[in-house]
Design a protein around this nucleic acid. Structure first.
Length: 514
RNA sequence: GGCGCCGUAGCCAAAUGGAUAAGGCAGCGGAUUGCAAAUCCGCGAUUUAUCGGUUCGACUCCGAUCGGCGCCUCCA
C-alpha cells in the first residue's frame, strides 16, 4: 500500500488512483523566459523517480510536464533582448529539455505548451464566464473568487486574508483577490484574438486546460514546488472545479524548495544578488531566477548528472534542500563506493553490473532466500527499501537500504574470498548475482545505476594506456623481487600524475582521475 | 502583520506514539596489505533546540520560549 502526503488534507493518505491500474500525474513545469537552474530540476527528478516507482509497482503512468511559454515575464525578457517572444520561448525550452535530457529524465509522456492551446484556453475562459465564475472587464477576464465557496482550501487560507492591494489592475477587478484568466494586449505585445479583443492567457489557466485535456477532469496527482501552492495551484483548482464541478486532482504533492547557502558566485548561488543589506545576505534563501541563480547547464560542467540526482534524492522531497557544491561532492563520495562495487562485481563475475538482468516489476523481483544468510539479508533490505518508498516516496530512507545492501555484498565477497580466482564456486557467485540483481532492480526505481559512469578522465590515449601497463608490469616484478622501494616510487610518482594503483588478488589495476 | 514549515551526533539526513534513534560524509581503532588503496569489522546522540504538559510509553501529540526559513508579489 502506497501512501502519499496530500497538501489538501495536510496528511498522508492511501494512494488509490481514479481509474484502477492507471495513474495520471501533472507536474508544473517552467515558465521559459530564462535558463533553468538547479531548482527547476528538483520536481522533475523526484517525479521521474515517482513515475518509475509507480510503474514498477504495476501502474500505467502518464506524466505531464507543462511548458508555460506566454507570460508577462516572457514579454519583458524578449523585449529586453529585442527578440520575438516565441524565439525566446523556443530557446529556453530547448535549454530546459537539454537539462532534463542530461539528467536522464526520459519518463515524461507529454510536454504541452500554453501557446499550442490558445483556442482551448479561450473556450475554457468563455465557459467560466457562462457559468458565472468569471467576468469580462475592459478587455480582461477575471475569475470571481467569491463564486468559489472553498477558495483557499489548498493553501488553507481564508478569502479575507487574501484581500490585498490587487496590483495595478485593481480598478478593473470586483475584488482584489480575483485573478486574470485573460489579459488584454497593450500595443506591441504578442496577442491572439478573442471574444474580448486581442490578448493573451493569464498565468494559471493553461494548466487547467492542458491537464484536463491530457489527463481528464479529475486526475490523480498534481505536483509542483511548494511555492506554487498559492496562488498558482489554488487558482487552478478554482478554475477547474468551477468549470467541471468535480475535484481537479486527488493528491497534491509539493516538493520543498532549494535553498542557496553556497558562497556568492558559485553554481546555484545568488550570483547577482544586490550588494545592499549585507547582514541578510549571509543567510540562506530560496534560489530563484530573480535572485540570479546560475544556469543549470553550468552546473552540469561541474557535476555528473547521477551525482546531482543522488543528491536530490538523498533527502525527503518535501524537505527544503540547502544547496552547496560541497554537499553534492559529499554524496558523490558515497555514490563512488557503488561504482567501485560495480567494478568489483565485474572482476568477480566477469559480467558487467549494468547487464545484470533486473526485475522491472515488483512481483518479479520477489525471490525465496531459502536459508542462505546473504540472501535473507538481501531480501530483507529490498523489503525495507520498498517500505520506505511506499511511505510517501521516502527516497532518503530508501537510499540507506541501498548502502546496506551493497555493504552486505561486499562482505560476502570478502568473507568468501570471491575475488581470488581459485576460490570461486558457481553457487556462491549465483548468490552474489542475485544480490546484484536486487541492488540494480531497486536502484533503477530511483533512476539510479542505469548506465556506467563516465570514467573520471578519458582513459588517455592508447599509448598512455600501454605505457601504464608497462609500468605496472615492471612494478609487479619489482614487488616479486621485494624491491619495494622501486615499487613504491612507481606508485607514488604515478599518483602525482593522477594515476591510482590498487593491488588486488587478481593483479594491479590502474585508474586515471581523482 | 496574517498563514505555514523546520530545528535529530562535527556536517548531511531517516524514523512522526511503542522494544538497542537508519544511512551517508568526516574522524578514530582493528582485520586485510610488503606498505598502501579499496573492502570488511568495531567506536560516536544516556538522547532528538529549550522549558513545561498529555500518556503506561513521545523525536513523534499539546502549550510556551529561542533560533532558521517559506508563502501572502514573479518563482520549480
Amino acid at each position: 500500500m502506497i501512501r502519499v502526503y496530500n497538501t489538501l488534507s495536510k496528511s498522508k493518505e492511501p494512494f488509490e488512483p481514479v481509474r484502477p491500474g492507471k495513474v495520471g500525474i501533472y507536474l508544473c513545469g517552467p515558465t521559459v523566459y530564462k535558463p533553468s537552474h538547479i531548482g527547476h530540476m528538483v520536481g522533475p527528478v523526484i517525479f521521474d523517480a515517482i513515475k518509475r516507482y509507480l510503474t514498477y509497482s504495476g501502474y500505467e503512468v502518464t506524466l505531464v510536464v507543462n511548458v508555460t511559454d506566454v507570460d508577462d515575464k516572457l514579454i519583458a525578457e524578449s523585449a529586453r533582448r529585442s527578440m520575438l517572444m516565441s524565439e525566446l520561448a523556443a530557446e529556453m525550452t530547448r535549454d530546459y529539455m537539454n537539462n532534463l535530457d542530461a539528467m536522464g529524465i526520459d519518463t515524461v509522456s507529454h510536454f504541452p505548451r500554453a501557446t499550442d492551446h490558445i483556442d482551448q484556453i479561450i473556450q475554457f475562459t468563455a465557459d467560466l464566464i457562462q457559468k458565472g465564475c468569471a467576468y469580462e472587464s475592459d478587455g480582461d477576464v477575471y475569475f470571481d473568487v467569491s463564486k468559489d465557496e472553498d477558495y483557499g482550501k489548498l493553501s488553507h487560507r481564508t478569502l479575507e486574508s487574501m484581500i490585498g492591494e490587487g496590483g495595478d489592475t485593481a480598478e478593473r477587478k470586483r475584488s482584489s483577490a480575483d485573478f486574470a484568466l485573460w489579459k488584454s494586449a497593450k500595443p506591441g505585445e504578442p496577442s491572439w484574438s478573442s471574444p474580448w479583443g486581442p490578448g493573451r492567457p493569464g498565468w494559471h489557466i493553461e494548466c487547467s486546460v492542458m491537464s484536463s485535456r491530457l489527463l481528464g477532469e479529475t486526475f490523480d496527482i498534481h505536483g509542483g514546488g511548494l511555492d506554487l501552492v498559492f496562488p498558482h495551484h489554488e487558482n487552478e483548482i478554482a478554475q477547474s472545479e468551477c468549470r467541471f464541478g468535480k475535484p481537479m486532482a486527488r493528491y497534491w504533492l509539493h516538493n520543498g524548495l532549494m535553498q542557496a547557502s553556497d558562497e556568492v558566485g558559485k553554481v546555484g548561488g545568488r550570483a547577482t544578488r544586490p550588494a545592499e543589506d549585507d547582514l541578510q545576505s549571509q543567510s540562506a534563501g530560496k534560489i530563484s531566477k530573480s535572485k540570479g541563480a546560475s544556469a543549470f547547464s553550468e552546473m552540469l560542467k561541474e557535476f555528473e548528472p547521477e551525482n546531482i540526482r543522488f543528491f536530490l534524492l538523498s533527502s525527503h522531497y518535501r524537505r527544503p534542500i540547502d544547496f552547496s557544491s560541497e554537499r553534492i561532492r559529499e554524496v558523490g563520495t558515497g555514490l563512488e563506493s557503488f561504482y567501485r562495487f560495480f567494478k568489483r562485481y565485474q572482476r568477480v563475475t566477469g559480467r558487467s553490473f549494468y547487464e545484470v538482468a533486473a526485475a522491472t516489476r515488483r512481483e518479479e523481483g520477489d525471490f525465496d532466500p531459502e536459508s542462505d544468510a546473504v540472501l535473507v539479508e538481501v531480501s530483507e533490505r529490498r523489503k525495507r527499501f520498498l517500505a520506505a518508498m511506499d511511505d510517501d516516496f521516502n527516497t532518503g530512507g530508501a537510499i540507506a537500504e541501498l548502502f546496506e545492501l551493497m555493504r552486505r555484498l561486499n562482505r560476502q565477497i570478502d568473507d568468501e574470498k570471491l575475488e581470488e580466482p581459485n576460490r570461486q564456486s558457481a553457487e556462491r557467485i549465483a548468490v552474489l548475482r542475485q544480490g546484484a540483481a536486487t541492488l540494480r532492480e531497486i536502484g533503477l526505481t530511483l533512476g539510479l545505476f542505469r548506465n556506467p559512469p563516465k570514467e573520471a578522465e578519458a582513459r588517455g590515449d592508447e599509448l598512455a594506456g600501454k605505457l601504464l601497463d608497462l609500468l605496472v608490469e615492471i612494478r609487479t616484478e619489482a614487488r616479486k623481487a621485494k624491491n619495494f622501494a622501486m615499487a613504491d616510487k612507481i606508485r607514488s610518482s604515478l599518483a602525482e600524475l593522477g594515476v591510482t594503483l590498487e593491488d588486488r588478488p587478481g593483479g594491479t589495476e590502474w585508474t586515471i582521475g581523482k
